[in-house]
Amino acid sequence: MTDMDIRLTVNGRLQHAKAGVMRTLLTVLREDFGLTGTKDGCSSGDCGACVVVMNGQVVNSCMVLAAQADGSQVTTVEGLASNGELHPLQRAFGGTWAFQCGFCTPGMLVSCHALLSSNDNPSREEVLTAIAGNFCRCTGYQGVVNAVQQAAAELRSANAEAVLQHD
């Protein structure tokens, strides 16, 4: 088949597109679904501007064929906020100058969000390892570390509160 009907769940919503085989998950997200938050920095998996979560794993969407993504669950930067409320990570990024031009930010946020979903108290090294595939030319990455640790702290205390309330 040269053209495929693909269906995927993006940020919790089922979407479909008709994708020529050469199209990537990145181009489908951006062009078919209008989710232009995820960026193309190199089209060859070297910069991480295109990072999304696919089936629970961070991937470079520029190198995933749309056909390969058929049937997948995808989370992009647009899916981090819930009910209009920014995720603590997004608030922390905005407040601590974890970006300058902002082009790497969507991919960076997704990588950091994925980190926090498996590590609620990451060290500086752990954050840097999680973003080792996210290239940023404007900052020196320390702002990202600060933002992630700040968000992690906020999430931990929110969880602690939730536990208390539950009790």
């Binding site: 647009e78 997004q90 970006f99 902002g102 930010t105 969507p106």
Partner: peptide, 12 residues
């Protein structure tokens, strides 16, 4: 915060 912060962190 940068005036564009909201737009940047939401991908808008």
């Amino acid at each position: 915060s940068a005036p564009g912060a909201y737009d940047i962190v939401t991908g808008k």
